[in-house]
Simulated scan of single mutants.
Amino acid sequence: MHRLNEVCPLLVPQDSRRKRFCGFISVGGVEFRIRIELSPEDTNSLKNTRIDCEWRLAHLLRGSQEIIQKKLELCSNLASFLQEFKSLIEPLVSSRREFQKTTDMSFHAHLAGEINKIGWDRVKSVDASFSSIQLKAWDSRQRLHVLTVKIPKQYPAVALSCLADLPLAFEPHIPEDKDSYLSNLYSEFEYSLAQYEDFWDLFDELDEKTWIIEPEHRNRSSTMRRIAIGTNSSVQIDVDPINPRGIPECRFLGPDHVVSQVRQRMGETLELWNAQLSLFTNLQTLMGIDFPSPQVTNKEDFSMDCGICYAYRLDGKTPDKVCDNSRCGRFYHQACLYEWLRGLATCRQSFGTLFGECPYCEQPITIKMLG
């Protein structure tokens, strides 16, 4: 693989098996976009390799298909074929007037040099135009993290922009030496991962030992967990990623007669919070309960469908408004209940709150007006 980088440093593997490559081949100062796909069955032969070229290169190579196929059959590896391929293209480029002027290669050459510093094994993906690249990094727990970098054509004169799956905004320092901006960016990303490791450790324990109702698709940037604490009841916690062992913000969801005792007990025992213990242990201790375990219960036992639309998720949201009648306890989406109450002739409004009756038990129920 090292020799392939030397022959075509701008050709990037697109899969872990290194069967698909995409990028640029540079010949005579001209860069051509190219895509190569090796046959997954032929491990020792290139004869069934597929090569897709941009229109300029395809135009140059008209009538050369048999020669290319012969070179594929004779070459033992991709690097040696690409060397032969470039030798075939070079006289074609030099003989054409439109390629007499050398294309400015500073952008791609500079970018390839910076990626070499980081390591091509850290590249997860790169688009064909080199305008976006995804870099991989691992924290000390071997959790994979991805940094997406947007690369302007004016780079390095114009700074990069990036997106990282972190709980707080990633705002890297812009170095004075812009020639190493990408490698410095990656180093700062690795440093940021170390800052959040305790936060992720605490959330990983919650994810493993409790039923997480929300978010449905968890990622490393989320600072919220809604945890099932019983049938029709849950607690939503919001954790400070800078101080993950501090007391989180807690919001109890469920019938008041169910959650009021847990809420009251937690309020009375806050002084027992021990920052040396995990979120999981502290929450169970202060609430005086054992969280339902995924090892012995089913998530469906705690995932209540909306009593109006009969669905669990609506626009990504779960039912979190409940009737406080102990004989009812129906759950509703905020939006569903809001529209239902608005349609009642008996509904009344006061100070941003709608007052009406539960669709099932007809006992009083209220909801904040939606903005």
Rank of each mutant, 00 (worst) to 15 (best):
P244S: 04
R245E: 04
R245C: 10
G246I: 04
P248K: 11
P248Q: 10
E249V: 11
C250Q: 12
R251E: 13
R251C: 08
F252Y: 15
F252I: 03
F252D: 04
L253M: 03
L253S: 05
D256S: 11
H257Y: 09
H257I: 03
H257M: 02
V258T: 14
V259S: 02
S260R: 14
Q261A: 12
Q261W: 00
Q264R: 13
Q264G: 04
R265C: 06
M266T: 07
G267M: 05
G267Q: 11
G267P: 02
E268Q: 15
E268I: 01
L270P: 07
E271Q: 12
E271R: 11
L272N: 14
L272C: 12
W273Q: 10
N274R: 10
N274G: 02
A275E: 14
Q276S: 15
Q276G: 12
S278G: 11
L279E: 05
L279A: 03
L279W: 08
F280M: 05
F280E: 04
T281A: 13
T281C: 06
L283C: 05
L283E: 01
T285Y: 00
T285E: 12
L286H: 00
M287H: 01
M287C: 11
M287F: 00
G288Q: 11
D290Q: 12
F291V: 02
P292I: 03
P292N: 07
P292H: 07
S293V: 03
P294M: 02
P294N: 04
P294S: 04
P294I: 01
Q295E: 14
Q295P: 02
Q295C: 06
V296N: 14
T297V: 01
N298S: 13
N298T: 04
K299P: 01
E300G: 01
E300R: 09
E300P: 00
D301R: 04
D301V: 01
F302E: 03
M304H: 15
M304W: 12
D305Q: 12
D305V: 14
C306M: 05
C306S: 01
C306Y: 02
G307P: 07
I308F: 06
Y310V: 02
A311F: 07
A311S: 14
Y312P: 07
Y312W: 10
R313M: 09
L314T: 08
D315C: 09
G316K: 09
G316N: 06
K317S: 09
T318D: 06
P319S: 04
D320M: 08
D320Q: 12
K321R: 14
V322A: 02
C323R: 07
C323Y: 09
D324F: 08
N325P: 07
N325V: 01
S326I: 06
R327C: 05
G329Q: 05
F331W: 15
Y332V: 02
H333R: 05
Q334A: 10
A335S: 15
A335H: 12
L337F: 10
Y338E: 09
E339I: 01
E339N: 12
R342E: 13
R342H: 11
R342Q: 15
L344R: 13
A345D: 13
T346V: 14
C347L: 05
S350T: 05
F351L: 10
G352N: 07
G352E: 08
